[in-house]
Amino acid sequence: MSKRVLIVDDTAFMRMMLKTIITGKGYSVVGEAEDGLDAIEKYKELKPDIVTMDITMPRMDGIESMKGILEIDPNAKIIVCSAMGQKALVIEALRLGAKDFIVKPFDADRVVEAINRIS
């Protein structure tokens, strides 16, 4: 059975990109969330194996959302997605418990690798 992935990103375009990249590589995208709050709700509901978490989002950012998810499930496997130049935030996320990070613009191989590694 393929691993179930929740994609969190505020832009439909990036969600689509990620979905295209990981679908068919042994993963299925079980859900998408548009912001941090949405992500926490979806996580509770879907119990995905892996979450890709954008950092900058409206309503609640990725860092806060991650904290929320980890509170519900300390073993949650979260990969943060960041833009270049968000170094400090990425480190913060890693410190808080993110398992890995990927950098936009996405390199398909690197994304798949990152997901493979933590699953």
Partner: peptide, 13 residues
């Protein structure tokens, strides 16, 4: 490698 310093941070951690 993008964000080498963050990778290094992970390694050093």
């Amino acid at each position: 490698t993008p964000m080498k310093s963050v990778r290094a941070y992970m390694i050093l951690s």
